[in-house]
Amino acid sequence: MFSTQRARLDDLRAQIARIERGPVAAPGQTVSMGSAEIDAALPNGGLTLGALHEIAGAGPDTEHGAAAALLTAGILARLTGPVLWTMEHADLFAPGLAAAGLHPDRIVFAAAGKEVLATMEEGLRHTGLAAVVGEIAGRFSLIASRRLQLAAEQTGVLAIALRRSRQFDDPALMEPTAAMTRWRVAALPSPPALAHAPSVPGLGPARWRLTLTRCRGGEPGTWITEACDATGRVHLVFDAADGSAAATQRVRA
């Protein structure tokens, strides 16, 4: 009884998803967020291709979005094929992107000035790309985001809106958009490089708080992770103090 209900629900969900997504995109193709635990919390087991996703920095990093860019580079590293990265002014440092596993030959940059959104849309209408990243400064209207979402649905290209703002935690970043998932990456203080010898100077892996603030068909959550490694993967941090995965609380909403 229960299982048939469940099957019927799944079927209905799939139908709704098909109606929402349109006919062209392959259903349910995803790319990993870089961690099996995080993927498990996402509706299709990863970031859905052919959809718009939003990543923003938090706090003082809202302006430069360095952590957000690194996370994005890590996601792109797991795709194959060329990607378009468009922004107002090119301030990315390609060796840093390469350090997350994103090879420079794969990235076409477009310094688009005020035409970031138009450039993104142009890229999303193109099937030859694996992904399109747009660094959007300030406001990102519902209409603009819906346009990008529709363009992405039709070609199956992954769209990532990297939100930036000159204001710390700009309220404009919280306004609703049509993005399928919305993420915030905040830097957290990292522990000493050598846990057993805290006085020894050095830098261990950076730490992030990864917050899924909105997820269509899923639930929000928060994870504490290490920053992207050389292959772009993020590792959940298990708090050694109480031996549990306490730091990886999922916030039930």
Partner: peptide, 13 residues
């Protein structure tokens, strides 16, 4: 070609 992997480099310059 890419850059040497052992030198930590920032993501924004």
């Amino acid at each position: 070609a890419t850059w040497p992997a052992d030198l930590p480099r920032p993501i924004r310059l």
